[in-house]
Simulated scan of single mutants.
Amino acid sequence: MLIMPMLQQLIATPSISSVNPALDQGNRAVIELLAGWLEDLGFTVDIMPLKDPRKANLIATLGSGPGGLVLAGHTDTVPCDEARWTHNPFKLLEKDQRIYGLGTCDMKGFFPLIIEAARQFSRHTLQQPLIVLATADEESSMSGALALAAAGKPRARYALIGEPTGMKPINMHKGIMVEKLIIEGRSGHSSDPTLGRNAMETMHSAMGELLSLRNELREKHHSPMFNVGHPTMNLGCIHGGNNPNRICGHCELGFEIRVLPGMDTVALQQQINDRILPFRERDGVTISLEHYCVPAFDSGAGSTLVKICESLTNYTSESVSFATEAPYLKDLGMDVVVLGPGNVEQAHQPDEYLAIDRIQPTVDFLVQLIGRCCL
């Protein structure tokens, strides 16, 4: 079994993606590792370059024909604070029946398990193709998934995304609207407020409107399918001003909204604009909003793949509040389920790990799934 050597190389190859350019890295080296391993198994490999030359998607196909199964995952990781780790996050460590390293859980650790399962079919004649999909920038801009959507590929009947779900099939998740509110005022000496336009004071008013909107969304929208059954809004980070005796001339707020399936995100974006933009005239400031949205996902009541995964895992499908690339693959016409060996509680945390006792059951599950969908 070559799982550990492959995982060791993947963890040792940093591929952090971040909205902060100072932290953002490429994933091309990870893609090339996967491409080489899959080519050795007889896969036909297609590397899709992205606008950033450091980044790419990978579509590797074994067999041909209509239908088939996509096994998908993202190759990037979140940034990490190495000082909070008890060991090197880029060096695989096996300890206490766990495998530690950045990406072991979310979600580089899924790829060696895919390859180990696919190895058992490398000499079979598949009736339907097996496709391994590896993407870029899921943790930041979704640029990899957006490029796939624009290209209209890959095409298959089924798709499984190996995000950390504790091997439970996920048939529904919330969407996420990521927002950046920028207010430009005018700095000046704090001894005379008329000398400037305080961007932080306008931000205070804007935050009050956002919190009121949060309460309204909570009252208006509810779904019993989620543990947190209403939309959530998080005011995540704020930066403004540079000295107590200077009028704040610039202030930025980063916030996000987790929306339920069926909510109209275009209308919600307009609500945000309508509440905040009027402060421009009132306060004599400039206001801009930057945003992107990952849609909510619902596999649908008639999903065949949900039923297959439930029968193979003995788990009933569930919903989660985190977002994935599932809606983009569904829009390509695939029946999609999110299911992987890690636990989301270990993701995005110092000392991220994958439990060793999850490895062989996941390989066994993937072998059965490939058999059901491709033979």
Rank of each mutant, 00 (worst) to 15 (best):
P21R: 04
D283T: 05
L102V: 12
W85G: 14
F121W: 08
Y315I: 03
I3T: 11
G236M: 13
M233K: 10
P112Y: 01
F121P: 01
A29C: 05
L58S: 02
T232K: 11
N234M: 07
M6S: 12
P164A: 01
G42E: 05
R98Q: 11
M200E: 12
S15A: 12
D364M: 13
N215M: 09
P112D: 01
H221Q: 05
L268A: 10
Q97W: 08
L34G: 01
H173W: 01
P14C: 09
V70Y: 00
H87P: 02
P154A: 07
I114C: 13
L33H: 14
D106V: 08
G101H: 06
T135L: 13
R186I: 06
H222K: 12
N171D: 13
F279H: 14
E318Y: 07
A83M: 06
D364Q: 15
T265W: 05
A83C: 03
D357N: 15
Q128T: 09
A60E: 02
V70M: 00
E352S: 02
L339C: 14
E345G: 03
S64E: 15
H124V: 11
I287C: 01
I114R: 07
M203Q: 06
W85F: 03
S64L: 04
N343C: 15
S190N: 07
P89A: 10
G196E: 08
A134S: 13
T13E: 04
N27Y: 06
V367N: 08
V266N: 09
G196H: 13
C374L: 06
R358D: 10
C237I: 14
K168E: 13
L93M: 15
G185T: 03
G284T: 05
Y353P: 09
S205Y: 14
F365Y: 15
M167I: 07
A12M: 02
D357C: 14
R155K: 13
V294A: 09
I356S: 13
E139D: 06
N243A: 13
Q25N: 05
T202V: 14
R98C: 09
V367A: 06
L160G: 07
H124F: 07
A118F: 00
R157S: 06
A12F: 04
V19I: 14
P66L: 11
L133W: 00
H173C: 04
H348T: 04
L217Q: 02
Q269M: 15
F365Q: 04
G342T: 10
L146E: 09
H124I: 09
P129E: 05
M6L: 15
E184W: 05
P66T: 12
G340S: 10
R123V: 10
S321L: 11
T135D: 09
H173D: 07
T232L: 10
L195I: 07
G26I: 03
R28N: 11
V30I: 11
H74C: 09
L2W: 14
V336D: 04
H87Q: 12
D24A: 14
Q346I: 11
G42I: 02
D137W: 00
S122C: 12
E209H: 09
M225L: 14
D76I: 06
S140D: 12
T86P: 08
D298S: 09
M167G: 03
L160D: 03
K307L: 12
V78G: 05
A206E: 08
Q8N: 15
I31F: 00
M167W: 01
M172Q: 15
V337S: 08
N343F: 15
A136S: 14
F121K: 00
L34H: 03
V336W: 01
R214I: 05
I308M: 13
S303V: 01
T265S: 07
T125F: 06
